[in-house]
Write a protein that binds this DNA or RNA. Structure first.
Length: 649
RNA sequence: GCUGCUGUAGCUCAGAGGUAGAGCACUCCCUUGGUAAGGGAGAGGUCGAGAGUUCAAUUCUCUCCAGCAGCACCA
């Protein structure tokens, strides 16, 4: 028997028979390691204990102490155990795929009857049975035809399709958890008893298309979460509860920021408090844009289809547009318009007024552009994904040579704003040409290269997002993460060679001839709606003082202090602080509670003592401790806090 | 848009084939109270919309609308 040499993490090497398995290696080290082993790293690859090793390699035996492989195996084996449980309870159910997710796994099933929440309990119980039975996990490599036939005979059409999709040169690996079989690339645990029966939970059922394709059958997805131990599971469930508390939809109600109603799905009714955040943010952005060399414009909401046909939106984007038909009295035909889903075509109209010179470029044209898009009903989500929203939009008309500089400038512009607003970290994603697109491949080549080169000049921390570009050009996305870890695209920068062409934008170059400008579409916050939603969740409602709609509530302890309360409120207002009086006939406990729930950052309590001493007692949100301060001193301090970050010295 | 679930007072929710209930919020009264809910009284609902079954529907059935979770979509 040929020998191979395996090198252990401590640097020692040992000879083994060729074809030795990690299980045998582990057992040769010690009996207990043989039992505790869950998998191995062989030359850095996650390796099943049963897979033979055919050549010299480095090896490390994994146990449950090794977090990454342990979690991967637990979640992956849970998927199989769950699928087995489901097929044992409902044998007619067909299995498909069951991958590991960020905190657990899911498995997609095809079954006539929908799974109910009660079914989940039954599945969980069956899973625990399977785990407690400590069923061995075994694996074999099969010939393609044999596997194919096996699944055909077993009435598993989805598995047949999966077998067919496995590339020619890849092995077709079969796994068994006890008597239950699945096609799987592995690796897996030694036996089901290695799964922690008390550290998993089924989270729900939902629909999911087979292979993510709308035209394929809708399957039932059962998802779960799993960890190494009960404590980690509890911690995660606790995190979900905390995340639910920061949900902007809930806080929006508690803080009286906005509401939404049936008659206007996907559109926001901003209340005074919410609108205060909005306008404060808008004022800030307006100042930033002025500093950044932008000119601000405003364009129509309802625009004739002719312009959308010319821009390409009518063809590529019509399904997402609100169409407005108007019966004009003396017209032969109805006039057909659309609410603008984007501002770009209108901005080109402004650009096209009068002749532009190369000296006018780059021309940075900004608009707080109110847009309406008919988003699919299932996509709507609070104020984060809506049908009516306002972008902090701008289009930079420039030459191809100016793309790099303008890109770098914009990334710097955005970084400064995100920092001011409390988001020092964010992801940058680069999306290239999608399947449905306008413009030639040659133009796309140039646009993609220009954008990527300019981005790389600023940062190398760019994720690739193949095929996700806009129909007219590649884009950069600046992505923030919400309270429960979902990513939201906020900022964007898109290079566009197509629209200037379609809408015939030109400028006169140095040579006296007409040339095509390039357009850079860009937004920093993205939309005010989404950005405010993220702000609320990020801060759990406790917004930075300068953004808080109600910055201070001055609460009387006894009605004899009412007069002084108004004096304090007026002093604060004069200092530029948003202050309100609360002189209701309620106890101070009650007032403190109510305004704390409402996330007012500063509560000032005044009673006899304060009236006499011309002081206030300060209670900051989330702090138990109070502080007695002279009114003048505090007003000056709060005035500074109330100043937007760009206006402080 | 698709699958599943949900829709009862401003909010959170209970309820049943015989035309509705709680807590909080709201209004009024008492209380002037020192840092997360003082006490009492009162008012408030076409039970998401429409159709059907039934002597009778908010309850059962269907259609539509909206919301929630996920999928798909996201310029």
């Amino acid at each position: 028997m040929a020998q191979i040499s395996l090198t252990f993490p401590d640097g020692n090497a040992r000879e083994f028979d060729k074809g030795v398995t990690p299980a045998e290696v582990a057992a040769s080290i010690s009996k207990s390691l043989g039992k505790k082993a869950i998998s191995a790293m062989v030359d850095g690859q996650h390796w099943d204990l049963q897979w033979p090793i055919e050549a010299d390699a480095s090896i490390a035996i994994n146990t449950m102490q090794d977090e990454a492989p342990a979690l991967e195996l637990i979640r992956h084996d849970m998927a199989h155990v769950m699928a087995r449980a489901v097929q044992e309870i409902w044998p007619a159910t067909k299995v498909t795929i069951g991958p590991v997710t960020e905190h657990g796994w899911f498995y997609d099933f095809d079954r006539e009857e929908p799974f109910t929440p009660e079914d989940l309990g039954q599945i969980e119980a069956k899973m625990k049975e399977i785990i407690n039975a400590r069923e061995p996990v075994t694996t074999e490599i099969w010939e393609r035809e044999r596997a194919r036939k096996f699944y055909e005979e077993n009435g598993e059409p989805y598995k047949v399709e999966l077998v067919d999709r496995i590339p020619e040169d890849a092995a077709i690996r079969m796994y068994w958890h006890g008597g239950w079989q699945d096609l799987c690339r592995g690796p897996h645990l030694q036996h089901t008893g290695q799964l922690p029966a008390d550290a998993f939970k089924l989270m729900g059922v939902s629909g999911a298309y087979w292979f993510g394709d709308v035209n394929r059958p809708m399957l039932q997805r059962v998802s779960g979460v799993a960890f190494r131990n009960r404590d980690d599971l509890k911690k995660y469930l606790n995190f979900l509860e905390e995340a639910a508390k920061r949900d902007h939809r809930k806080l929006g109600r508690e803080m009286d920021l906005f509401h939404m109603q049936e008659e206007a799905p996907g559109q926001v009714f901003w209340h005074p408090n919410g609108w205060s955040i909005y306008t404060t943010l808008q004022d800030y952005m307006r100042r930033q844009q002025q500093r950044g060399g932008y000119v601000e414009v405003n364009t129509p909401q309802v625009v004739d289809r002719k312009l959308w046909e010319a821009s390409g939106h009518w063809e590529k984007y019509q399904d997402n547009m609100f169409i407005v038909e108007v019966d004009e009295e003396h017209a032969r035909e109805k006039s057909v318009n659309a609410l603008k889903p984007m501002n770009c075509p209108c901005h080109v109209q402004i650009f096209n007024q009068g002749l532009k010179s190369y000296r006018d470029l780059p021309l940075r044209m900004a608009e707080f552009g109110s847009c309406n898009r008919y988003e699919p009903s299932g996509a709507l989500h609070g104020i984060m994904r809506v049908r009516g929203f306002t972008q902090d939009d701008a289009h930079i008309f420039c030459t191809e040579e100016q793309i790099a500089e303008e890109t770098e400038k914009f990334i710097g512009f955005l970084a400064g704003i995100y920092r001011d607003l409390g988001f020092p970290t964010y992801k940058i994603k680069f999306s290239d040409r999608p399947d449905t697109r306008a413009g030639s491949d040659e133009v796309w080549d140039r646009a993609e290269k220009a954008l990527m080169d300019a981005t790389r000049a600023v940062t190398n921390d760019v994720e690739l997002n193949p095929g996700e570009g806009a129909f007219y050009g590649p884009k950069l996305e600046f992505v923030l993460t919400d309270a429960i870890g979902r990513d939201w695209q906020c900022g964007t920068l898109q290079v566009d060679f197509v629209l200037p062409e379609r809408l015939d934008a030109t400028y006169i170059g140095k040579d006296g001839d007409k040339h095509r400008p390039v357009m850079l579409h860009r937004a920093t916050l993205g939309s005010f709606e989404r950005f405010i939603g993220i702000l609320i969740e990020e801060h759990a409602g406790k917004l930075p003082f300068w953004l808080a709609p109600r910055q201070v509530v001055v609460a009387s302890i006894t009605s004899e202090a009412d007069e002084y309360v108004y004096e304090v409120v007026n002093a604060l207002k004069a200092a530029g602080v948003r202050a309100e009086a609360d002189t209701r006939n309620e106890k101070i406990n009650y007032k403190v509670r109510e305004h704390s729930v409402g996330k007012v950052p500063v509560i000032l309590a005044v009673g006899h003592r304060e009236v006499e001493e011309r002081t206030v007692t300060v209670r900051r949100l989330g702090e138990k401790q109070t502080q007695v301060r002279p009114l003048d001193e505090l007003a000056a301090e709060l005035a500074l806090d109330a100043t937007p970050p760009d206006l402080r010295d």
